[in-house]
């Protein structure tokens, strides 16, 4: 019993560490890829690690009071918590203890913490940025909620681990026609979730000087950047879990540790591919205005999602 608990705690902390490590690596990879598109060499892929280390090693740290500090705590703590509730490459850490609705709300914890910090600084740039971030959230949640509800009804479970389990033996959701379209809808929403262009409106350096991040620096900025980096892993993993079977290709019961290894590699490749698609779109598009983004998601994306809902609806009725 005690051994079990200790083992699971160790596994979970290991996974969280892995998540952060992958997040920082992704940052480096994204910068490298964007640099290639820009016709330049770009930083080394391990640049993310250096940046985070540097930010945490800054000598003085300027804060705006205890509410400002809460931001850093909640964002790192909250994103780690969210990661624990996701099935990663078929390994479910806590994903049996909560479901997709819980995950959707857990993602809000770091976001809200971040929002508190940004608001507490009292900088108007941060406030405007936060307003845009929240509106973006409202915008992309509608299509993604519709797709997720359609999936829940189709698989008759709300548990993400359950959805992943249903897709085992390579019966990925993306192979089912409505969810192939659903994956495209969700990928658009993912673009907004990851705050990549054309939906990087909340950060928009030329407009509001990186918006909510405007007063963050040193370890505060380090925490927020960690949150963003881990956020890319969480969000891409969510996408992969929903549509690509969580990257599970081999049955663990059959192949043992080898299956874990293969699944992890497949999962890593899949989230990398999903992430790189977002990054490449990011490199060649300008950003929308916030009301244009809202209209885009609620008009086009949500319309397609509604079509999927009707598709599933008719299937259910039959």
């Amino acid at each position: 019993m005690v051994m079990n608990i200790i083992t699971s705690i160790l596994v979970m902390s290991g996974m969280v560490a892995l998540g952060f490590a992958i997040g920082m690596l992704f940052n480096g990879i994204a910068r490298k890829v964007v640099a290639r598109i820009h016709n330049r060499v770009g930083p080394p892929v391990y640049q993310g690690y250096i940046d985070v280390f540097k930010l945490f090693s800054k000598k003085t740290n300027i804060s705006h009071g205890w509410i400002f500090d809460l931001a850093a705590l909640f964002s790192v703590g909250g994103i780690a918590l969210t990661f624990l509730f996701l099935p990663v490459a078929g390994v479910s850490m806590l994903s049996g203890e909560g479901d997709l609705f819980l995950i959707l709300y857990l993602i809000a914890i770091p976001a809200l913490g971040f929002a508190l910090g940004a608001g507490a600084s009292g900088n108007p740039n941060a406030a405007v940025g936060m307003m845009r971030a929240l509106m973006m959230m409202l915008a992309y949640e509608l299509p993604i909620a519709m797709v997720i509800v359609a999936m829940m009804v189709y698989y008759n479970t709300t548990s993400l681990a359950g959805i992943v389990a249903m897709q085992s033996n390579l019966k990925w959701a993306i192979g089912i026609p409505p969810f192939l379209i659903g994956a495209l809808v969700a990928d658009m929403a993912l673009q907004g979730m990851l705050m990549e262009k054309p939906f990087d409106i909340p950060l928009a350096p030329h407009e509001i000087a990186t918006g909510p991040l405007v007063e963050f620096g040193g370890k505060h900025l380090g925490s927020i950047i960690l949150y963003k980096m881990m956020g890319t892993v969480v969000e891409t993993t969510l996408f992969v879990d929903l549509f690509l079977g969580g990257g599970v290709v081999l049955n663990v019961n059959q192949f043992g540790w080898f299956a874990y290894l293969v699944n992890f590699i497949v999962w890593f490749v899949l989230i990398l591919v999903v992430f790189l698609i977002a990054v490449i779109i990011n490199a060649v598009f300008p950003r929308f205005r916030i009301e244009q983004a809202l209209k885009f998601y609620w008009k086009y994306d949500a319309l397609v999602a509604l079509f999927i809902l009707f598709w599933i609806f008719s299937g259910v009725m039959v």
């Binding site: 330049r40 770009g42 930083p43 080394p44 940046d51 990186t210 991040l213 405007v214 963050f216 620096g217």
Partner: peptide
């Protein structure tokens, strides 16, 4: 950026 240098928007960062 080869050397990790980028320009940031605000002095805090």
């Amino acid at each position: 950026e080869r050397f990790g240098m980028i320009s940031m928007a605000t002095p805090r960062q």
